[in-house]
Design a protein around this nucleic acid. Sequence first.
DNA 1: GCTAGAAATGGGAACGTTCTCATTTCAGCT
DNA 2: AGCTGAAATGAGAACGTTCCCATTTCTAGC
Lengths: 339, 339
Amino acid sequence: MSTLKDVADKAQVSVSTVSRVINNEPLVKPKTREKVESAIAQLNYMPNRVAQRLRSINTKNKLLGLVLPDIQNPFYVDVVRGVEGFAYQRNFSVMIGNFDQDESKEKMFLEILQSESIDGLIVAPSHGRDQHIEKVIENGYPVVCIDRGLIGTDVDVVKVNNQAGAFAAIEYLIKLGHRKIAHITGHPQIPTTMERVAGYEQAMSKHGVAIDSALVKNSQSNYQSGADLMLELLRLPNPPTAVFTANNLLTLGALKTIHESGLRIPEDISIIGFDDMYWSMSLNPPLTAIRQSGQDIGRIATEILLQKITDPGRSTSSVVLDTELIVRRSCKALELVVG
Amino acid sequence: MSTLKDVADKAQVSVSTVSRVINNEPLVKPKTREKVESAIAQLNYMPNRVAQRLRSINTKNKLLGLVLPDIQNPFYVDVVRGVEGFAYQRNFSVMIGNFDQDESKEKMFLEILQSESIDGLIVAPSHGRDQHIEKVIENGYPVVCIDRGLIGTDVDVVKVNNQAGAFAAIEYLIKLGHRKIAHITGHPQIPTTMERVAGYEQAMSKHGVAIDSALVKNSQSNYQSGADLMLELLRLPNPPTAVFTANNLLTLGALKTIHESGLRIPEDISIIGFDDMYWSMSLNPPLTAIRQSGQDIGRIATEILLQKITDPGRSTSSVVLDTELIVRRSCKALELVVG
DNA sequence: GCTAGAAATGGGAACGTTCTCATTTCAGCT
DNA sequence: AGCTGAAATGAGAACGTTCCCATTTCTAGC
């Protein structure tokens, strides 16, 4: 790879001038600029981002960090696409860390990203009191949280109205005539989980449906957990007529168990999931779901982060996006049984 | 963030000595080492990777590039996990570029990664004659291709025996009694596609089944394309009794169309897909598939890449992994119709 | 106690940029 | 032609490391 100096030599100018041309500074004679540009073209020169980053600490590192709990979850894949789309368009690189719900791995990524001199960080905290992220903020890095915030810390957040989303799901089921509605929740320590539980409870109580605590199962927020808990639900003496699964992975896990036990959806049991997938219609029957746009979340978080980077004094903002109930065919109306 | 110099000052030694301690060089008195380590702990010092990378060009940049065609495809997500798992364990960072099947975006990522001073690159070429990757190789970067090689270029490759995999799929269908077997292929320009088509043809001809060219559909290797082509197949005057879809996304797309047209799997049509997913059992019925381990591919590619980095003279190797036929319930045996 | 040689430490250049400051060039005016 | 001030260019420090080489400190043998 050729360097600034190579270009300077070839164009018979100084390094400074070449730098000026590259950064589009105005004080260069058109003729000189031309000479330099031709040299750049000939040598196929590309600025070394590492050197740029080292030199101009905290101004134009052009690198964003993105730390996610689980890249196997299609929702986070959407987030990645949203972030990348916006970032690269603005000439920022993105370094992704996927910590697989493992807090020590999260810590490692956070440290690595800091020592890579990122300009800022987008992260979905592993839980509401994530000290490692707080430390990053203390260190002075601009941080935007997605999907979930940080309890007791004033930080920018881009998320979705989880409670309203869950509320809509449960209200939909209730209006369909369901009363025995199970909820497989996310990991209990994640704020998102609590909000979705709150939405569940709110809808139940609004419609005067008593909550059977046996029907609320706390999960580990993964596929296996969804499958296991669904099995527990089906084995209950008084099993649910409908399930609300708190995320993608849980939905898929529950689906597996339901199919394996030979139950038909929606005839024998209805299911509605938080998180939609682009291939939800490939499920049989197509899944009814609460949709949140990971791509929008990623894009907006990146926009805010870039603003924070250019204007560090900016007051923190909290963006709450709406969810959407996508009715497909995994829930059916219950004829009311006279008790 | 504190620097080497800060540590040196606090420990009352020179920068060189601190550097020695960090890099575990032997020539440091135990007492000195202790002093330095305590200073490091107090200051919470972490080496700046950017400076390290700039200084020691081509020796310990500790950064790998990973460029993928489509992060929405669960197969590549597995690859990411395989690469990350191995790389971070060896103290390498990974910078991921997802080019969404867009060659110009691929070019952009390749350029960015080079200017980030990566030590090496793992990439799934957009097609067999990918000039951008050839350029990276010319520039002297160690490169390992995954999933597909480069035609006419001697490069390390880690892939799967696509032809054998496809052969196994088709032979399985034939043994089940199918004769009208459709194949929705991947993008025609990708070597992988051709190999899978070859497997299809090989199995058909081995068992004396004539190929109906109307049943072979070239796709764009995405979800929509799978759905569209499946529809074309179903509308044929003489539709297939079984389909072999060449990858994940196509399978999902085909599934959507089949469900929408009210056909039952496997009673009305059988389907077998290349690529398994961890949630294949959540499909209804659970999908019969040819499994390839993205994680293994990622891990092995990383192993090879790290070897290439330490020993650039290393001769190129080509690793071909086996696929596995996972029989579930999306294909049924056909009672032979007397024609 | 002196010296040789090894062990331990320090000094400073280099990596490829950016950016401040100094210097040169040039156009426009008398 | 000579002068002025703006425009254009150049020189060189700095970013945080590594690593070569020089210097200092130590150990052991006489």
